[in-house]
Design a protein around this nucleic acid. Structure first.
Lengths: 224, 224
DNA sequence: ATCTTAGCCGAACATTTGTTCGATGTCAAG
DNA sequence: CTTGACATCGAACAAATGTTCGGCTAAGAT
C-alpha cells in the first residue's frame, strides 16, 4: 500500500465501506444498499460509493449481483467480523466409558454437533463423544460431558490424549509425557498422581481438542 | 375471464412463502423481494404476495422493515431451515478466582465470545468468565476454563451456582440444595464431601449454564 | 509547466421494488 | 339464495435503488 494519497488525513473509504457492510450484515441480516452505505458513512453522493464498490469488486473483495437491490456480497470479511455462519458440523459417534474402546472415527455418525469454527484449529476429521459415568473425572471430565477428539496416534508431550491401555482394556483421558521407554500419564486433576506405564501398552487414539459441558438441562444439541 | 385455480388441491401459499423465503435466504444470504417470491412460486401478482405477507406478519411469523427493499425478516424459521448463523455474542467480563467476587454483570465487557444459540436456553443476560487457578477443581472446572453464567440470586435445588461465601470471602462453584435454614453445597466431584453452611452466609451470584474447555493451544476466541 | 490518475461531487436516468386500488372468484355458513 | 370471509387478479403509482455522466480537485509523474 504505497498510495501517495495517504499523506494528509485522508479517510480510507474502501476499508470503511467493507467494515460498514459487515457490521450492517450482522445487525440487519442482509446487505445494505448503496445509499444506506452513503448515509452511514456520510458520503456526499451514491456515485462515490458506487465508485469504490467497483474497485472493491476488481480487487475481489466483494461481488455484486446484477442490478438487484442489495446486490453486494462480501467475499472476504474484515477481521473479527466473519459472519456467524461459521459452524462446522462434527460427527457424534456415541457414548464412551472407561471400559470401552472408542468407536472407530470412520463409523457412521449418530448425529452431528455444530461448533464455531473459530474454536477449533484442526478442522478436518474431528469427532465428538459423550462421556458416560465418572471414570474420567481425574481429567476434569464428568458424566455427560461432550469431548471433541482429533484422531491421531501421535501427540506432543503435554497434550491431553485419549489413551487405550492394552493391559487393562481401558480408555482414559490423560496428559501424555514420554519418559524413555515408559510413558507418564498425568491426570488433569493436580491432586492425582501420575501413572507410569511401558510404551507398548499405550495406544494413543487421539488428541482431546475440546470439552463441552452443558448445565442447562438441555443436552448439547446432538440431534437432527 | 377466469384463470387457473380450480377447486382442486388448494395450495397452502402461506407455508410455501415461508419456506421459499428461508430457502432463498440460505442460497442468497439475503431476503427475497416481493416479486422474487412471486416469480419463484409462480404467483400472478405481487399484490397476492403482499396480501399473504401481511397475514404472516399478523401471525407474527415474519416481520417487515418499513418500505425498504428486501424488508422481510423471518421470525420463526420452518423446521430444519434455521440458519447455522445463530451464534449469540456473550460479554466476557474477565478472570475469576476463588478469592475474588465475580464482576458485576453490567460491567464493561473486555471481549465477546460467540456461542451457538441452540446450546443456551436462557438467551439474554448471560456473561462469561475465565477461571483462574485450580481452586474450582471440585466443580470439575480447571485453570483456564471458560464458564457461562446466568446472573440470578435464586436457583433450583440441584443446579450449579456461582456462590459467594460471605464468611470466607470466597467464590466457588457448587450444586446447591436447600436444607432447612442451611444450605448444602455439593461439589461436582463425587469423591468430595459437601459443605453445610447457614443460609445467611450464602450469596447466589448466578447459575452456571455452560463450561467450555479448549485444549487446542488456542484460547477460546475471546476477541471482539 | 503539463499530463495523468485516483478520488470526489451533484444531478439525472432507468429499473426495481413496495404498496395501493377496485374488481373478481370461491366457498362455507346462515 | 344471500352473505361475508378469504383469496386472487391486473394495473398503476410512488418510493427506493443501481447506475451513468460530465465536471471537479489534488497530488504525483513527466
Amino acid at each position: 500500500m504505497k498510495r501517495g494519497r495517504r499523506s494528509m488525513g485522508r479517510r480510507n473509504l474502501r476499508q470503511e465501506i467493507l467494515t460498514f457492510i459487515a457490521r450492517w450484515y450482522h445487525r440487519e441480516k442482509t446487505y445494505p444498499t448503496v445509499r444506506e452505505i452513503q448515509k452511514g458513512l456520510k458520503i456526499s453522493s451514491p456515485s462515490v460509493v458506487d465508485y469504490h464498490l467497483r474497485r472493491l469488486e476488481e480487487e475481489g473483495l466483494i461481488a455484486r449481483v446484477g442490478r438487484r437491490s442489495r446486490g453486494i456480497r462480501l467475499r472476504h470479511w474484515p477481521d473479527g467480523l466473519a459472519p456467524d455462519g461459521d459452524l462446522i458440523p462434527i460427527p457424534f459417534l456415541g457414548p464412551i466409558a472407561a471400559g470401552d474402546p472408542i468407536p472407530h472415527p470412520s463409523a457412521e455418525p449418530l448425529a452431528w454437533i455444530r461448533v464455531p469454527r473459530l474454536w477449533l484449529a484442526s478442522g478436518n476429521d474431528l469427532f465428538a463423544l459423550r462421556v458416560q459415568g465418572s471414570s474420567m473425572i481425574d481429567a476434569l471430565v464428568g458424566d455427560g460431558d461432550l469431548i471433541i477428539v482429533k484422531p491421531t496416534s501421535e501427540v506432543e508431550d503435554g497434550e491431553m490424549a485419549v489413551v487405550w491401555l492394552m493391559d487393562r482394556h481401558e480408555t482414559t483421558l490423560k496428559y501424555v509425557y514420554r519418559e524413555g521407554d515408559h510413558i507418564r500419564l498425568q491426570p488433569a486433576h493436580p491432586a492425582m498422581s501420575p501413572l507410569y506405564v511401558p510404551a507398548e501398552v499405550v495406544q494413543i487414539q487421539g488428541r482431546v481438542v475440546q470439552v463441552l459441558r452443558n448445565l442447562n438441562g438441555l443436552p448439547l444439541p446432538v440431534d437432527q
